[in-house]
Nucleic acid binder design. Structure first.
Lengths: 231, 231
DNA sequence: GAACTAATACTCGATTTCGAGTAATCGAGA
DNA sequence: TCTCGATTACTCGAAATCGAGTATTAGTTC
């Protein structure tokens, strides 16, 4: 899958909007908002206009008219081209059919979890859970409302997916907190010991592994598996 | 939470690495790789060097020595500063404690799901499921291996989180496919009818809502709720 | 009808991001 | 000892990204 000429997901939304009818950029932005698509695709004015320009440059859309309304800046109305329709279909197929690696900030944070003490980690994760619970409630309320309006679910599956993801995140985080609290996370007791040793001896965390018996009271068998330069 | 001076997650990883000991940029990159942190934080050489420069400019790290090794480019070794340690701790706390809105590509795709026929959608989602299954198997194998090496789980929680997310995605996708297939997704039958009408009458999708009785055989009560300009 | 707020419709330029390219050296095998 | 692929260690510039700022008009309230 060669790289897209215009890769910003907002460009995808622009193509999607223009495949309904010609519009000017600001109109696209308001339509995305009224339809709530800006909840699933990040909308930023700066990006919108540069993305529209890039789409035009690549022949996916074309200016069909410019209207001037009093002294306001003139609006350029764009229409999708045949190439643009192809690009949109191809892009949608890719988005749905081929999952692409995405990086979440929690993943980044967890990668450095041992940099905090277990207690501090639990405190922060609990805080996260609270925020996520609120998020879930907001989503559920919105869904209940749309359902009661008989608004077809097909128009808000993306929000249901978001809900599923947040639920998974909360479930994981709760389990993690419990595991840290109970030390059942293998290595968590070790994590505690390490932190206490750092405080007690006033050493750097990296020094812990130079004398495991002193600081952990035992050999660490897995330590031998790690090449020295990665310790 | 004011914006970070250096916002790229890779900068966070750089601070995390340098809080262990001074290193030169390339050394950071290899350490991230051997520890598998590059699976959770996107590593790109171009970004690495510009991020290091930005961190230095902002006083979070400082060059401590430059070594030259034969005719190779000279390596600048950087150390973290006190401000850098604070920044790292603050950043980690934010990553763990305050979930930030993230946009996934599947969400973007689902937002335009009705642009494809139900059959095509199912076909693509099935394809996605296949890829996700393979991904899950890879992760599970890797985890089993680390567990059998007694490598403490605390060092790979981020990968467990990733697994939880992929599992949630697959569960959701499977449910969605089933719902589309069985038409139990309210609005899915309507989606089918709409698509058939577009083919039968050769009209634009947007025209469907101009005469719902003709194309869907009934009034669509929720349609009245939508402001005309958002239709 | 003056004042003010909200909505409309962008613009701009400072960063950021990216990934392909480069160039030296090392090590293993022929 | 020659070669060649892998590893080391970056560089560069084109393109993307962002969000704050601007200017006009429409609507609302006193």
């Amino acid at each position: 899958m060669a790289k897209r000429k215009v890769a910003n997901p907002l460009a995808f939304a622009v193509l999607g909007s223009l495949s309904e009818r010609p519009m000017h950029p600001y109109e696209i932005s308001t339509m995305l908002k009224t339809r709530g698509k800006d909840m699933s695709i990040k909308l930023n004015y700066g990006s919108l206009y540069s993305v529209v320009a890039a789409l035009e440059k690549n022949g996916f859309i074309e200016a069909v008219e410019t209207v001037r309304d009093g002294n306001r800046p003139e609006k350029t109305v764009y229409a999708i081209t045949a190439a643009g329709r192809d690009e949109f279909a191809d892009w949608l197929a890719e988005l749905l059919g081929s999952p692409e690696r995405e990086y979440s900030q929690l993943e980044a944070g967890l990668a450095y979890l041992p940099a905090f003490s277990p207690d501090r980690a639990v405190e922060l994760l609990d805080q996260r859970i609270e925020t996520l619970v609120a998020e879930i409630e907001k989503l559920e309320t919105a869904h209940a409302e749309m359902a009661s309006n008989k608004f077809p679910r097909i128009f808000w599956v993306e929000s249901e997916f978001r809900l599923a993801l947040v639920r998974a995140e909360i479930t994981f985080t709760r389990q993690l907190v419990r595991a840290i609290r109970t030390d059942e996370l293998e290595g968590s007791a070790f994590w505690r010991k390490g932190f206490e040793a750092v405080e007690k001896y006033g050493i750097q965390p990296a020094d812990l592994f130079k004398d495991p018996v002193k600081y952990f009271g035992e050999e660490l068998p897995w330590l031998q598996e790690i090449p020295p330069e990665a310790r």
